[in-house]
Simulated assay, not measured.
Amino acid sequence: MATEQLTEPAPSHDAVTASNQPAGSKIGWKRKLAAYVALTKPRIIELLLITTLPTMFLAQRGLPSVWLMLGVLIGGALSAGSANAFNCYFDRDIDRLMKRTQRRPLVTGEISEREALVFAWALAIISTVVLWLVANILTAALSVGAILLYVVLYTLILKRRTDQNIVWGGVAGCMPVLIGWAAVTNDLSWEPLILFLVIFLWTPAHYWPLSVKYMADYDRADVPMLSVTNGEGSVALQSVIYAWATVVGSLLLVPVAPMGWIYTGAAIASGAWFIYEAHRLYAGVVRRNDKSNPMRVFHLSILYLTILFIAVGVDAVAYLPLG
């Protein structure tokens, strides 16, 4: 459901050894289970759930039922896991060429292609049923839409064709806020659409700096990330533009929701920090000095989004009006 937002560790000796095994060869059940979990990219799922739960608080203007929250989080995690598993299946050829993805189970041979497809389809079906049962058909439909956006729009259409892949493909990563809102209200309104916009604008400023670190990987795999097609300078400039756009977008929620002091203060403070670091990256690239640290912006962007959405949830529960 989300774009490939979090880096993966470099391949270990065991992973490299495993890559020489026939796909689907017999391994211990613990290792097999770990391989299936890895196929879902759990670190990406964590970030998706961070945006879902606070949106549910905002929709409820308080705490939704425990069963609804638990059901949506489980259904959302299964849905995201399905999209990520499909992504691993379709990207298995280029994953073999990139150092950061050489530990993925389809590359190491711990999961066969057939097993990966069956697993991805099973998660898609189960997640749809879960979200329909615990919430409503709109929530389930949005989840299916998120899977299709990530697998079809991003993975199959955009990723290998344009350096804007992460921009429009990032729409899939915005869907959890719509899913969380619809689960509570069985409807959509301006508030989740603004949060959708925030994540949409945040994604390029978050992911493009990471792509600088793995520029050689993407170049080797012939994936046209902006860092490959236009260089680090373009990434730094675009990070500044999108950081500003993200923060401005986040402030639109204040009059619309409306939001109180908690969210407003957090959005301004964390947003100012995000913008400052993006400008610092750009200045470092222009001056070619040691302040050019794309990974600093990458990690900070995760912290920024986490703070912003925690503030959404806290503000909804402990609302302190501005006026």
Rank of each mutant, 00 (worst) to 15 (best):
D14I: 10
A15T: 14
V16Y: 15
A18K: 09
S19Y: 07
N20A: 11
Q21I: 12
A23T: 11
A23G: 11
G24F: 03
S25P: 05
S25D: 15
K26I: 13
K26P: 11
I27N: 04
I27L: 13
I27Q: 02
I27S: 02
W29H: 12
W29C: 15
W29L: 14
L33I: 10
L33G: 12
A34H: 13
A34E: 15
A34V: 09
A35I: 04
A35V: 04
A35W: 04
A35H: 02
Y36Q: 07
V37Q: 11
V37R: 09
V37K: 08
L39I: 04
P42F: 02
R43D: 13
I44Q: 01
I45V: 11
E46P: 10
L48K: 08
L48C: 06
L49P: 07
L49A: 15
L49I: 12
I50Q: 10
I50S: 06
I50K: 04
L53T: 12
L53A: 10
P54K: 01
T55V: 05
M56R: 01
M56Q: 05
A59S: 09
A59M: 05
A59V: 00
A59P: 01
Q60N: 10
Q60F: 14
Q60M: 10
R61D: 08
R61T: 14
R61F: 13
R61Q: 14
G62M: 11
G62D: 10
L63Y: 15
P64A: 11
P64Y: 07
P64R: 08
S65C: 08
V66L: 09
M69L: 07
L70I: 05
G71I: 02
G71H: 03
G71A: 08
V72D: 00
V72Y: 02
V72I: 06
V72K: 00
L73N: 03
G75N: 07
G75M: 06
G75W: 06
G75I: 05
G76W: 01
A77Q: 05
S79A: 13
S79T: 13
S79R: 03
G81Y: 09
S82C: 07
A83V: 02
A83L: 02
A83N: 00
N84F: 03
N84A: 07
A85T: 04
N87G: 01
F90P: 02
R92S: 13
I94V: 10
I94E: 13
I94G: 13
D95W: 12
R96C: 14
R96L: 14
L97A: 15
L97S: 09
K99L: 14
R100V: 01
R100H: 00
T101D: 08
P105I: 08
V107A: 11
T108N: 15
T108P: 11
G109A: 08
G109R: 03
I111N: 04
S112P: 05
R114P: 03
E115C: 05
E115T: 02
E115Y: 05
A116G: 06
F119L: 00
A120M: 04
W121P: 08
A124N: 15
A124G: 10
A124Y: 04
I125Q: 09
I126F: 08
T128P: 01
V129N: 04
V130Y: 01
V130R: 06
L131V: 04
W132D: 10
W132G: 03
V134C: 07
A135L: 00
N136Q: 00
N136K: 01
L138F: 08
L138E: 05
T139G: 06
